[in-house]
Computed example of a mutant assay.
Amino acid sequence: MKTEKIDGATLDTWTPEEVKAALDAREIVLIDVRTPQEYMFEHIEGALLFPMAFFDARALPGQEGKRIVLHCGSGVRSEKMAKVALEAGADRIAHMEGGFGGWKQAKLPYVGTEMSTGAPKRMG
């Protein structure tokens, strides 16, 4: 995990493997900031969808029991939204390095689309 201080707040950057371990241990809330279409085509099982287009940092859940980790396709949008959350008053937030692409590159499991039927299918 990489940590960066921004105006007294903390932005953490987690690897896909760190996110997977914390998700399995139920230590985090993973929030996908991609579009609904991207999410429907393939997503990390258990990730909540809060698209960047509708992102309101004030609506994020508290982090008393679980940390929040944001992710997108490559890490660019999630880092941007994490910084928005810090500007809105969050004292600490995280995002996933490399985004969903990094997750797939690490060969971690996800829910994709079975192209022959259009049905969801566990992949990875």
Rank of each mutant, 00 (worst) to 15 (best):
D91P: 05
Y39C: 12
V84L: 03
K121Y: 05
E27N: 10
P51T: 11
M123V: 15
D32Q: 07
V76F: 08
D56W: 03
L48E: 15
V19A: 11
R67C: 10
E97C: 01
L86R: 06
G8F: 05
E97H: 01
A94C: 04
T15Q: 08
T10N: 00
D32L: 12
P16E: 10
G8H: 07
T113C: 12
I93E: 00
E17T: 14
G73A: 08
M123Y: 08
A22E: 09
A119F: 06
A85G: 04
R77G: 11
D7E: 06
S78M: 12
D12G: 00
G112A: 15
T35L: 12
P61Q: 11
M1T: 04
A9W: 00
P16F: 12
A25Y: 09
L30D: 04
I6G: 06
G99S: 07
E27P: 03
K80N: 15
G118F: 13
A22G: 05
E18V: 10
Y110M: 09
D24G: 05
A59K: 06
F55V: 05
R92D: 02
H71P: 04
L70Y: 04
K80L: 13
F50Q: 11
A88N: 07
S116Y: 08
A57I: 10
G112Q: 10
L86S: 15
L23V: 09
E42V: 05
P16R: 08
L108P: 03
M96R: 00
E97T: 04
G118P: 09
W14T: 02
T35Q: 09
T35C: 10
V84T: 01
L48P: 03
L86P: 03
R77H: 14
G46E: 12
T3W: 05
V84D: 00
L108C: 07
V76S: 13
M40K: 10
V33L: 13
R77D: 09
K104Y: 04
I68R: 07
I31L: 06
G124K: 08
A82H: 00
E79W: 01
Q37F: 12
Q37S: 14
A9K: 01
D32I: 10
Y110H: 07
V29M: 07
E42S: 14
R26I: 05
V19M: 12
G73V: 02
P61H: 14
E42D: 07
C72G: 08
T35K: 10
G98E: 00
G75E: 00
E87M: 11
P36M: 12
R67P: 04
Q105P: 05
M40S: 14
E64L: 04
Q63E: 08
G118M: 14
L30I: 07
K107T: 09
I44R: 01
A9V: 01
A94I: 01
A53F: 09
G8I: 02
A85V: 04
K104S: 05
M123P: 02
K2N: 14
K121E: 13
V111P: 04
P36H: 10
T13V: 13
M40E: 14
I28W: 07
P61K: 13
G46S: 12
D24L: 09
T3P: 01
D56A: 11
G65C: 08
